[in-house]
Design a protein around this nucleic acid. Structure first.
Lengths: 278, 278
DNA sequence: GCAAAATGTTCTATATCTAATACAAATACA
DNA sequence: TGTATTTGTATTAGATATAGAACATTTTGC
């Protein structure tokens, strides 16, 4: 019984991809010839070529007969970079067309995980929904939400298909006050892969958020998956405290809808830590 | 020409491994039968079995003829959930033993990406280093850093192997003032996979951070990779503003070292928001 | 005890991966 | 203009991955 290993082709493909994206191999640089690569990695030229074909498809290299294989300008992520927490507001402000497809809508006993997070009594019922959100007709997030039944009944299936959940909640008188969110990385399974239009086994950003109202009661449990090629989670920080207590603290990341792009490192940035380190 | 993909066996193997380690499938839980899995994933039973064999070898499942396949309590080490920005300080505060292995240390012309981020003139030289950080002898982060040469010369190779880079910088009189960081998801290539002791093709949390001093000059470019089974990025937020301007704002997220719950990355972290309202 | 369902085992057949080789076409350079 | 080197293409052969099926053995549950 052998450990499960990836194919040699994929190994080489990932290796080269890594080096290119990482900048080890800079744009314009010529890769070793196929026979050379074959010798270096002790693989046949067929395998080398298959890996290069993958890179070519990714737009990472240019192959010129007779000349060689060259690294292209691997542009670092042209995607919509934004703070996941306010992303939707962002997109709307930027006038991007977003829509959500409702895949599932039901009332059911709360899964243990959700019960624990929202501090429900065991088996209490919740409103459960699964949505995929699109931006300009390309899927960019997969949202699974759980809301305590007492709150869930205040909106309908149609509401959920058209309006952000948080908006619905606040319309119902719920005061979203605090949230705790966790970001991790996962792999796309067959289902998710199809919905988000990525390959099975692709990396995904996974975010779990629990929202509490002003009484500290859990009102929403959200598990979201994002395509890392379309989004990344960005935040600004400042250095606060002194001595051993000196640490990074987040800065309120209100990204200005007008000001696209860069973290804006300008020293003249008057937007000082608008956050109170209290 | 088809995109380079991992084998179906490996795909399924990684997918299930993920779910188990993440707690989606809790210990004791019985997996669907092999024919069921085959149907769900549209694979042959042979393939299903190969993947399960891998998991069995890892000690993640127990297979009992006639009964089924069960998830074992392989909950590895308790995941250290923390804010990536202050993680190191955390760990130190918790008395965990961390050490870094220096894999590379050199002075070289700045890669274009780094030049752009740090706003260096093209070709300006930088101090480049690659480190792997261990906690209790298991690798948990892979760090690639670039520092402008004028600053880089203030510390030695030995310094870097023993002391956090930011500490070195501040010791040299650099005042780290602001930082911009971006979090995404990637896949582990062969090199990284070996260094972080994960499978090739495993998901990784990728963080890029640019640190600026009080004059707005870039002083450090950091590209870090984290194992999502050991760490996740957590933050607390509050709801601020009114009306259409109502948004999420981050809260200084100091995790209390004392609060040693059974965290576990991913879904189901029921840990109550442990912010210190100071 | 019996039937259903689960994993374990074995087999055949096909597709894909990989190696090895040969040759054509395009390019670079002395 | 050659000549060497490069990528593109094709063929052959063997190893491996995957699908599909049949059957044995163990367990569960009635």
């Amino acid at each position: 019984m052998v450990a499960i290993e990836p194919s040699k082709t994929q190994r080489l493909y990932l290796l080269l991809k890594e080096q290119i994206l990482k900048g080890v191999l800079s744009p314009g640089h010529r890769l070793p010839s196929e026979p050379q690569l074959a010798a270096q990695h002790r693989l046949s030229r067929v395998t080398i070529r298959r890996a290069l074909e993958g890179l070519e498809q990714d737009g990472l290299i240019r192959r010129q007969p007779g000349a060689g294989t060259f690294v292209l300008d691997a542009r670092p992520r042209k995607g919509v970079v934004g703070d996941l927490s306010n992303m939707l507001a962002h997109l709307v402000a930027m006038g991007r067309a977003t829509r959500a497809k409702l895949l599932s809508f039901s009332y059911q006993p709360s899964p243990p995980v959700v019960s624990a997070a929202l501090k429900l009594v065991d088996g209490e019922r919740v409103q459960h929904s699964i949505r995929v959100r699109y931006i300009d007709d390309t899927p960019f997030s997969h949202l699974t939400t759980y809301v305590p039944e007492r709150i869930g009944v205040t909106y309908s299936e149609a509401d959920l298909a058209s309006t952000p959940l948080l908006t619905l909640l606040e319309r119902s008188g719920v005061v979203a006050d605090r949230a705790s969110q966790t970001v991790t990385a996962t792999l796309a399974g067959p289902e998710i892969a199809e919905l988000l239009q990525v390959e099975i086994g692709s990396p995904l950003l996974s975010m779990t958020r629990v929202v509490y109202d002003d009484h500290g009661r859990g009102v929403e449990y959200l598990s979201a998956l994002y395509r890392p090629d379309l989004h990344s989670f960005q935040m600004e920080m400042t250095r606060t405290g002194i001595g051993a207590e000196r640490r990074w603290s987040p800065v309120s990341s209100l990204t200005r809808p007008g000001a696209e792009t860069k973290p804006l490192p300008g020293r003249g940035n008057s937007r000082r830590p608008s956050i109170t380190p209290l």
